[in-house]
Design a protein around this nucleic acid. Sequence first.
RNA 1: GGAGAGAUGGCAGAGCGGUUGAAUGCACCGGUCUUGAAAACCGGCAAGGGGUCAAACCCUUCCAGGGUUCGAAUCCCUGUCUCUCCGCCA
Length: 427
Amino acid sequence: MLDPQLLRANPEQVMAAMQRHGADLDVDALNALETRRKAIQVQTQTLQSERNKRSKSIGMAKAKGEDIQPLLDSVSQLGDDLKAAEAELNEIQSELLAIQQTLPNILADDVPDGKDEEDNELIHTWGEPTTFDFEAKDHVDLGQQLQGIDFEAGAKIAGSRFVTLSGPLARLQRALTQFMLDTHTDEHGYRETYVPYLVNKESLLGTGQLPKFEEDLFSIGNDSPYYLIPTAEVPVTNLVRDEIIKADDMPLKFVAHTPCFRSEAGAYGRDVRGMIRQHQFEKVELVQIVTSDESEAAHEQLTKHAENILQALKLPYRLMLLCAGDTGFSATKTFDLEVWLPGQQAYREISSCSNFKDFQARRLKARWRNPETGKPELVHTINGSGLAVGRTLIAVMENYQQADSSIKVPDVLKPYMGKLECIKKAP
RNA sequence: GGAGAGAUGGCAGAGCGGUUGAAUGCACCGGUCUUGAAAACCGGCAAGGGGUCAAACCCUUCCAGGGUUCGAAUCCCUGUCUCUCCGCCA
């Protein structure tokens, strides 16, 4: 959520920022609503103040044993007026909130203009696209050859966009997960966390998935709905909801491995082949809770932490700065890591690292106490995939494939794969 | 699933329906004392919003949502969560 003060004081500036993000803001309607809000709020508070005073005087009169009936009579009209004013104020404030909650974050100055992924800016590439002296297969063919990926079974058990893994490939996914968690905890100083995979509405409002993107989420349950997490960002960031964090504890760095569930509502027809885009996938997520001074540097640092995983796996990739149109609702700035997939002859997103500044924190009421002022201040939240495990599995398979469809095990994963050096078709 | 108890400021913990945003303790901040520290003593210390050049000042908030009342932390209803006991269980 944007700073309501800014919205109030400078709606034109906010509107210009919104348009950059492809959103719109009706400044006139907002101003009209604001004017009403202010008038009604003043009126309501005046009435409340009057009621408080009179009630107090009734109390005092009663204590002295005076006749309070005249006082009671004089206050009778007040109650009705107050109720009406309060109702109207509530109405206006929920209208204002509804507007505020659907406004995206203001983009950082260095985010390039643009409409979609075509306009993203290349920051750097690492490694060279893998080449083979045979025709590269994609992970679907490889998985079939190795009898380790079964889309039909996934479809039978659940439906389309579900998959089953088995044997060494299933283990490879687990190895990747373990390797990522170990690296981030041991080398990068993150605290491993285990969190619920089902969350309530408040949590999703806090991180910004709701109210605007309900169709991307799976929900279960009846009167008190739960939502399946689309990313560990939701439960992990919500750890600090309604908290005032001690200065000594800052920054907080969390890493969590969770499954992620996405309805992929807007993605019909995209990436239908293979396990690029699934309803359920594994991800290792990095979250940092930092002060405003630190947030830019922390964002760069967290992105580097994700890059380190790709480098350790020796997977070629490139780092992109997302353009305005491609940057998500809550983010001020996002870096994507795109890994080279020989089967597609393309770079594909494997991590997305975003700085939300105080946008999520404001919704979450997540603050820290600044010792310089003694006052609570909003934290900045940053997160990124470190990495999407399912897509990393694909990348390893496709980049480490050999002519006979076997897959060499990357060096750093060998400790996690028993004695296995190479994943081969079962004889 | 059954029975009971509870939810109050950063933490602990009081609080007859009436000048209570809330006693007290701890923590924290400032000061006195001390060579320094500790102790002792004095003072300050919730959040959010409105208002102001800045203040003063005003409003809201004692788990959440409703209700009763001139007035609710205090009474009533609903929900959520926590704890204890019983049952069941990975």
